[in-house]
Design a protein around this nucleic acid. Sequence first.
DNA 1: AATGCACTCAACCGCCCAGGC
DNA 2: TGCCTGGGCGGTTGAGTGCAT
Length: 303
Amino acid sequence: MGRPPCCDKQGVKKGPWTPEEDIVLVSYIQQQGPGNWRAVPANTGLLRCSKSCRLRWTNYLRPGIKRGNFTHHEEKMIIHLQALLGNRWAAIASYLPQRTDNDIKNHWNTHLKKKLNNHHHHHSSPATDLTADAAGDALFTTRGQWERRLQTDIQMAKQALKPPPPPLPAAESKAPHHQIPAYASSADNIARWLKEWNKNPPTNNPSRSSSSTVVDSGDNGGGKMNGAGLSESMDTLMSFDYFESSNSDGSPETSVFQGESEMDESEQLLPMKLLEEWLHGDAKDYYFADFTVDEKFKYDNLL
DNA sequence: AATGCACTCAACCGCCCAGGC
DNA sequence: TGCCTGGGCGGTTGAGTGCAT
């Protein structure tokens, strides 16, 4: 016997959300705060499953999220973090402020994986084979690799037990920190969206039309890539910093995987070490320049 | 202009886990 | 202790869109 569905399927609406539904959901959350999703459909009259409400909020309506137009640096971070953490998108998303796990997952599946595959086929060499997808897919195939992963998990668990960061708006603990009043920001998005909507009423795809306007796309470094930009981006993307690392002392006390001394030396994978170095190196400061103190705190604790 | 195909991404599905009873 | 429920996560789907022919 399978588990019953999270909610009664009868009378539950599925598919893209309409602007009206968005407004109902946002205004409810403005008043009540997110959480207790079970109560949301009941209290709002939305004919939606509680899960659907949560998903809509966390992946779309939540204030401060940035959609699409992944910057080059974000892509690099995703690639590195994916190599480190595997397909744990929520964990990866926690290091990319403003990005949702769903967005990152989609971007990985539709863009980055492909890019890395192409690169893999065109630059097949022992060194490059260990990067990219190959690294992501094959990283944890040995006992030592599994232990590394476990260590990462332990580190993350430790983090979770640390005292919480300075208080955030009670209703939005997972939101990025540099947007100030969570709901005001969200209401602002809706207002902006409505403005757009009045100007350009959606034809037959409300979800998509809203997706391009509700949330401020922010400054993502110049919008979509043209051909040249993509090419240039790929060059840099694939260059990584793996093989430019000069201070590879590899001291155990700075390792992500502390306590792996029992590990067979032969299991020390180059990419992992290099990733580690990269994450410890200057690149970190650069990529995390926009991070808040909390986010840096969290990141540093991972290391 | 019409058609087919490939791509994108919002949303759903199913599983897992933690907490409450 | 075991069951139930809510919430979270990762994988997958399919409608919409854009491009090539």
